[in-house]
Amino acid sequence: METIPSYFFTDLRVMLGRSMRHVFRSMDTIITVTIMPIALMLLFVYVLGGAIQSGADNYVNYLLPGIMLMAIANSMGYTSYRLFLDMQRGIFERFHSMPIARSAALWGHVLTSLVSNSLSVIVIILIALLMGFRSSAGIFSWLAVAGILALFTLTLTWIAAIAGLSAKTVDGAAAIAYPIHFLPLISSAFVPTKTMPRGVRIFAENQPVTSIVDTIRSLLSNQPVGNDIWIAMAWCVGIMAVGYFFAMRVYKRRA
């Protein structure tokens, strides 16, 4: 019997093209993942910034890492929503009855999350530059920042995938967005944690976003990153492994 050649990467590219159209044709998505974070950055810098004692002489520099993470976190409700719709409307069924690589449909969504978040992060950095963001970081530090952001995106994407694949209703699929939105707010993203009351501070200092924000901040300002980078990576890789395992399990069972 002849074997059928695998077209995984060709199929993946087609899937990516499809989902990217979904992103670009949804004004709501673009507003939430790019325009909102930029508006918040403007708000924090030009309205609240004067009153916030961040300890940094350039508040845009201080704020940018948190804004980038927030943009990524904001996109997860949409990733979950897009997966849910494909599941609900029988699109996955159609793909799976065709001679294409079976996991290409799911990886297409994951790749879309990576690519669309990269685009929105680049736009946010460009706006930050106009607002006075400056970095003395070299090429390797920037690559490290890109790597950590990609890892953070993948981690949240696999968590969002579990929600999107197992939800029974649209609201259920989108609900995953809320706990994820909260993480950057209760962290060192906007203000130093030492000003927070004890209970909140313990949470803020020991949740993943703080170590990721601190790592990116150190990399961009050419400071030693210390242990933060390893704590950040451990969080991401750990959560991603669990997320991937359960998302794949639901995918194989339901899709």
């Binding site: 409307r89 699109i91 065709m98 001679p99």
Partner: peptide, 18 residues
């Protein structure tokens, strides 16, 4: 091999609305 030789129109129109 089965997938290569068939096509399925499922119970609900599986079209991409966007």
């Amino acid at each position: 091999h089965v997938r290569q030789s068939i096509s399925l129109t499922g119970q609900f129109a599986a079209v991409d609305e966007i």
